[in-house]
Design a protein around this nucleic acid. Structure first.
Lengths: 195, 195
DNA sequence: TTGATGACAGATTTCAATAATTGTCATCTG
DNA sequence: CAGATGACAATTATTGAAATCTGTCATCAA
């Protein structure tokens, strides 16, 4: 019924657009099909359920957050402490930027993320792994106190919860948030540095 | 219409009871009056609005949390680092206990606290002050690195968000939470200890 | 006089009927 | 045949009329 062939990617983009316009509660498969000019049956050819479609949307969103993060981290010839500071600062900045540029859309993705814990968990695993790698480097090179990098990475992440967890997004509007984050990062780094 | 005189305290207790039974969405002033065997007009003699009544409930609840915390902190002759560890551990334990013993009631109070930010803020100020006092002691006695106790207390609190903020209560069910909290506390203390 | 009452207006919530959505699938089209 | 369609049953959301609640206040009782 249309010129271009309908594929999953196109459907995901259309879904994102509908989500942007109507929010997570009011987007229906029918809306998505309408935007694409196809019947809703065609959408079900590519996704087995509405939940699967929403999951594809959140997966792509999280993929892009990871891309942004990788782009933001300049893996220069810095020492591990400086690299860890840079990594955390970038993690915060990437999330804060997303949350600030379009708070409603961010809230929408937060709902989707809460719905699909598998995707959220694998995103968390990625973040932890980024931290763990820098910690391991620092321990190996003697910049950090000896420790289990896995456990320490988790502690660092946990201490950063306020600056990373979307549930705290409202607080990210405050102008003080940058100073508070810097203060926590310094506290963490001081705790890890070799004596 | 009743033997005992109706006072604000009695009304607050009855409101707590109704909240416990019906949850925050479904408790009405009429329910409270019914439980007390008075007309709802009598409730309005003591509280100008339903919001004011709910605020009184959350104030008393937070008062009691503070009492529990003060009781839990043994101000023994410990060094400031050990006292800070004990303080944070107690703060976590008190909140976790409340959340675990009756999750629905805890969720109810969370709703009330979100409604009345003034009360929440003054509760936060209390917690920060407890931390600040120990930090100041430690800095004065040379146990901690020199720092601004006010700012450091805030950093310590921010790093503890995951273990203190009611929005994270679901995670407090996990058996790993104690180990994770201990790990973050150690990270924080290592960062503060004098070198 | 102090404190309780219940009628009342306006706002909010409930509930059942109505409409829309989800997911399936037999059918159609190129 | 690959891919799209829309009728359909089951589920979920919307709607609007009726019920309930909030907050006020004139009235009453002790």
């Amino acid at each position: 019924m249309r010129g271009e062939p309908l594929d999953a990617e196109t459907i995901v983009s259309a879904t994102e657009e509908v989500l942007r316009r109507h929010g997570p509660e009011k987007t229906t498969v029918l809306d998505v099909a309408r935007l694409l000019g196809v019947s809703h049956g065609s959408v079900y050819r590519h996704f087995p359920s509405k939940a699967a479609l929403r999951e594809a949307v959140i997966r792509r969103w999280l993929d892009r957050v990871r891309e942004d993060l990788v782009a933001a981290v300049q893996d220069a010839e810095l020492t591990p402490p400086d690299r860890l500071r840079g990594l955390l600062t970038s993690m915060f900045a990437v999330k804060w930027a997303k949350a600030r540029e379009d708070p409603e859309l961010f809230a929408t993705f937060r709902v989707l993320a809460a719905e699909h814990s598998t995707e959220s968990r694998s995103h968390l695993a990625f973040l932890l792994d980024q931290i763990r790698a820098v910690v391991a480097d620092g321990v190996a090179g003697g910049d950090f106190e000896p420790c289990d990098p896995e456990a320490t990475a988790r502690a660092v992440y946990n201490a950063s919860t306020r600056f990373l967890d979307p549930r705290h997004a409202p607080e990210w509007q405050s102008p003080e948030i940058e100073a508070e984050a810097a203060s926590v990062i310094s506290l963490i780094l001081d705790g890890m540095r070799a004596r």
